[in-house]
Structures are given as structure tokens and as C-alpha cells.
Design a protein around this nucleic acid. Structure first.
Length: 503
RNA sequence: GAUCUCGUAGCUCAGCUGGUAGAGCAUUUGACUUUUAAUCAAAGGGUCCUGGGUUCGAGCCCCAGCGAGAUCACCA
């Protein structure tokens, strides 16, 4: 065991002696003054007519983040302010001054303190709190990495090892303000989305995470076991079928923002658990949904970044509506020059061969078209683009197209070459739905472990009647990545999944 | 799953052809009470990811493993 090199008992003892004299009138847990409020509003004051005696007394609490002579930094949840601690000046009596001086000397980076004082501007023009009272609140035993930034914005000793940052997110958040910024934006994404839906009168709901049948998407689930019921349960891979049951039940609009779980590979855009938003609105179709989505996303971008433009890598994305709409067939024609709309499976296979796209025997017509699209089109869709009208084979829950044979009324929204939303005119014909799920069962029998399962209760719900409905899913993590210019999902998850640390 | 790269002090990183383990910041002690990343002096701090191998000798070379990142494949 390492010896504790910090003199905690001494500090605490010093603090006990001081608490009566230096204690705050109201106690620091009663909303200490925030940095933003004071520093922000006083910056201008300090530049102009600055009169020290007019400055209000403030109390603040936060982490002590380093000292240089009489100047120190205090960091709270909103930022940092400079403190001025004149040696031996804090306290009423000589005895108290000696004690506080000893306390200040023992302060360590990361320690929590509370201070009282008045604000002034230094010769350099920095808003600084002249400390007149100081209280010790909590010890930091481990040394925080100290990140320094100079006037030109050069960063020194940055805490940047991704493994350490993800495993010890609390340290990352403490020393990397730009990381905290991303998560504040993530919360704004969700909050603004919720506001947008709520104002339209749609109902936020919760549906089961533990499901006896994992439906609504094609993915491998996490399985678990319920002891009392002695039954297998799955963590949901989607909530689509439950939300549709609620539409059957008579709600006109329902949405859920929550975690989904997929037992698949992990990479920079996939985490085993991720957050999705799914919404279902009755008496609407996918054409209507396109307009809703672009308005919603533009609203979110505006709320989060103050503009509908967003920098994503080296590209500037414009999220203001309207977005381009392109059928899947037209998109393939545009980027390959080939019209696949009338082709049969053999024709499509030939096209794939000509385009040097790898295929295997199990691929049907829909899958082949999707392969061509994925290889030749997706990467070109930089600005927000709706790709519409997908092959029926790939979309067992979507309604057949009103006029185009073999297609369904579906769109996906692509931005910067990546899918961020998926929507259908929902299939509300119970007979067709049963047939489609039976097709999935056949795929499963052939060894497709991601084929959808039959859900008899869901079919029963449809048999009672579901109104025409449009449904939409948006990946919250990926949307957040777009709006914060991050290329890794781990940067928008507080605690991304990691393998366990070794001893 | 494949390939490549990385793993050295609390953090960020050096480490030559294989020859006693280094720097800056941080920490401790002392001085200084001042500034805008970094004041001065001294000190402490290491299972060089783990386990094998080669060698007189391995942080370095070889093999295996663990962890991470990137690219690709797979997947809504």
C-alpha cells in the first residue's frame, strides 16, 4: 500500500477550527454564485469604469485548480475564475490568519473549496475574486492531469489517451471543457427534440425493455432470464411493435426516446447499447413524415448550435429544409448510369459483377439493390437527402407502395454518407403483415440469425385495426455526432462499452 | 472477424546500433506574493502492459497473450 502523501487529517483539523468563523451565512449548498453569471456580466464592466467598492460580495464553490503565487484558479460546473489569495490576509484574528494560511498552503489541485470575496480586474484585465474567506470542502487524493492552454490556443499536456478518457470519464470531464461541451449539446439534442414533439401534442411513452419476443428490427439480441417466471427474455433491439400497439390503442401520436441493445460488433459508429427515438403518428404517411423530419432536425440544429449549418469533418452541412428527395432507383441511376428498376435477380447480379461488387448466393433482389446502393451511392449523399421507395424484401414492417410494384413506402435520411433516420408508411394490413413475418421465418430457417420473429400478439393487435400510420426512427447518438462534429460514437456516450481493465 | 499502429512516472511524451531509466508538467520541501501554458532550488516517484524466447546483456529483437485506436469486413 502506498502511503498517503497528503496531510488530510491536518487539513480537516485546520478546517474544523475555522468553520465557525469562516462559515457562510447561508451555507454553500444554497446555490453558490455561478461563474457564468458573474464573469460573463462583469467582463465588460471591468474593461470600462471599474470601481472596486461597487463590486458585490460573492460566494463560490468548486475545485482548486492550481496556484501561481497569490493567484489560483477555481473551477466549477460552468468554468474557471481566477482567485487572488493574499498571503496571511484571510481571517479576522492573527490566529485565524495563520490557520487559513496553513490551509491554503496545503491545498492540492482538485480539492474542493468555497470562497467568499469581491471581484476586481487585475492589471491584465482578468476578472478575479479577491478572497476574503475560504473554506475547505473536500480532498482530492489523486492528482488530476493538468491541461494548459496558452494565448494562441496551443494545448500542453492534454489528457487525450482515449482509453483513459473513456474509462475515467470523470477525469476527462473535469479537465477537458470541450468534452463537457459535447455532452451539454447531447442533452440539448434530446431536449429540443422532445420539445418539438410535445408542442405538436404527441405523447412521450415508455415501452418494455425486457421483451419475450425481440421484434421490430433485424439484429441479434442480448438474452437474459427471468427467474420467477422461468422464462427467456430479450433486451429490446427496437420498440417499434410496442409503439404500434399503442397506435392501435387509440393514441394519435406516440414517441419514445430510449436505449436499444444489439449484440453485434462494436466500432466507431456502433455501441452495444445506443439511444434511439421512435415516433408513430396516425393518419399520416411517409411523404408527410419527410416534411416533419426536416423541420424537426433544422429546429434541433438551431437549438443546439444556434444555426442550421453544421461542420462535419471537412464538410459544411446545411440542415435547413427542404431536403432533396430521391428514389432508390433514381439514386442508383444517377451515380452509376444504370436503370435497375425493371431488372430481375439475374440482371442485378450482372450489374454487381460489372461494378465489382461482391455478392453471395443468399442475396435476393432487394439485397442486391441495397448492395449497389451501399457501394455506389451512399458516400455521395453529403447534404441531407431522403432516399425513398425501398424493395419490399428488406422492409417487412413497411406498407407496400401505393403505385410502384415491389417497393414499400419507406425513406431513409442520409447525411454525410451516413443514415441517420428511417421511416415508413407503416404496414397496417394484418394479413400482409403475417405473410411478411412468415417470409422472415423462412429466412431464419435458412440460417439468417437476424431475421425477425413472428409476434402473434402484434398481429392480433393489427387484426383489431390500426389506422394508417407513419413511423420514424432516429439514432440519437449519430445525430449528436453530426451536430458536434465527432467521428466516434464513444465521444457522445458518457460511458462507452469497454472491455474490463486488467488488474 | 482481418490488417496496421500503439502500450515507458499521476499526465503528455523522449529513449540512439541491444549496454546503469529520461524530460516537461504534476507531487513533496524550501524561497518568492508576482501573474497569464511553463518563477527559482532541491527531492521523491518506474513490474518499461503480461508471459515466454534469443543474447554475456532486452524498454528496444522474436513468439504468444491482454488492452486501446485506426482502416476494412459484417450489421440497421
Amino acid at each position: 500500500m502506498k502511503k498517503n502523501k497528503f496531510k488530510v487529517p491536518a487539513l480537516l483539523e485546520a478546517n474544523i477550527g475555522l468553520s465557525e468563523q469562516v462559515a457562510f451565512d447561508e451555507g454553500i449548498d444554497k446555490a453558490p454564485t455561478s461563474l457564468e453569471e458573474f464573469v460573463g456580466s462583469l467582463r465588460t464592466t471591468c474593461m470600462g469604469d471599474f470601481q472596486q467598492e461597487k463590486m458585490p460580495e460573492v460566494q463560490m464553490a468548486g475545485r482548486f485548480m492550481g496556484q501561481r503565487g497569490p493567484f489560483a484558479k477555481l473551477q466549477d460546473s460552468e468554468g474557471r475564475i481566477q482567485l487572488y489569495i493574499k498571503k496571511g490576509s484571510i481571517g479576522e484574528t492573527e490566529e485565524e490568519k495563520t490557520k487559513i494560511n496553513a490551509l491554503v498552503k496545503q491545498l492540492h489541485i482538485g480539492d474542493f473549496i468555497a470562497v467568499t470575496g469581491y471581484l476586481f480586474a487585475t492589471q491584465m484585465g482578468e476578472v478575479t475574486l479577491h478572497v476574503t474567506a475560504l473554506n475547505f470542502l473536500g480532498k482530492s487524493l489523486k492528482t488530476l492531469p493538468i491541461v494548459k492552454v496558452d494565448k494562441e490556443g496551443n494545448v500542453y499536456d492534454e489528457f487525450k489517451d482515449p482509453e483513459l478518457r473513456y474509462r475515467q470519464r470523470y477525469v476527462d470531464l473535469t479537465v477537458n471543457p470541450q468534452v463537457k461541451e459535447i455532452f451539454l449539446k447531447r442533452t440539448k439534442v434530446i431536449k429540443s427534440m422532445r420539445t418539438f414533439f410535445d408542442e405538436k401534442g404527441w405523447l412521450e411513452v415508455e415501452t418494455p425493455i425486457l421483451q419475450p419476443i425481440h421484434g421490430g428490427a433485424a439484429a441479434r439480441p442480448f438474452a437474459t432470464h427471468h427467474n420467477t417466471l422461468d422464462m427467456k427474455l430479450y433486451m429490446r433491439i427496437a420498440n417499434e411493435l410496442y409503439l404500434k400497439r399503442l397506435i392501435v390503442g387509440g393514441f394519435d401520436g406516440v414517441y419514445e426516446i430510449g436505449k436499444m441493445f444489439r449484440n453485434e460488433g462494436m466500432d466507431r459508429t456502433h455501441n452495444p447499447e445506443f439511444t434511439s427515438m421512435e415516433i408513430y403518428v396516425a393518419y399520416k404517411d411517409y411523404i408527410w413524415m419527410m416534411e416533419m423530419v426536416e423541420n424537426c432536425i433544422a429546429y434541433i440544429a438551431q437549438e443546439v448550435n444556434g444555426t442550421t449549418k453544421a461542420q462535419v469533418g471537412d464538410k459544411e452541412i446545411e440542415f435547413a429544409p427542404p431536403y432533396r428527395r430521391l428514389s432508390m432507383y433514381d439514386s442508383i441511376k444517377e451515380y452509376t448510369g444504370i436503370d435497375v428498376s425493371e431488372m430481375d435477380e439475374e440482371g442485378l447480379k450482372k450489374v454487381c459483377k460489372d461494378l465489382h461488387i461482391e455478392i453471395d448466393k443468399s442475396m435476393g433482389k432487394g439485397k442486391l439493390i441495397d448492395e449497389i446502393f451501399g457501394e455506389k451511392v451512399e458516400d455521395h449523399l453529403i447534404q441531407p437527402t431522403y432516399i425513398t421507395d425501398y424493395p419490399v424484401e428488406m422492409s417487412p414492417l413497411a406498407k407496400k407502395h401505393r403505385s410502384k410494384e415491389g417497393l414499400v413506402e419507406r425513406f431513409e435520411l442520409f447525411v454525410n454518407g451516413k443514415e441517420i433516420a428511417n421511416a415508413y408508411s407503416e404496414l397496417n394490413d394484418p394479413i400482409d403483415q403475417r405473410a411478411r413475418l412468415e417470409d422472415q421465418l423462412k429466412l431464419a430457417a435458412r440460417g439468417d440469425d437476424e431475421a425477425m420473429a413472428m409476434d402473434d400478439d402484434f398481429i392480433r393487435a393489427l387484426e383489431y385495426g390500426m389506422p394508417p400510420t407513419s413511423g420514424l426512427g432516429i439514432g440519437i447518438d449519430r445525430l449528436t455526432m453530426m451536430l458536434t462534429n465527432q467521428s466516434s460514437i464513444q465521444e457522445v456516450l458518457f460511458f462507452p462499452q469497454m472491455k474490463p481493465e486488467g488488474e
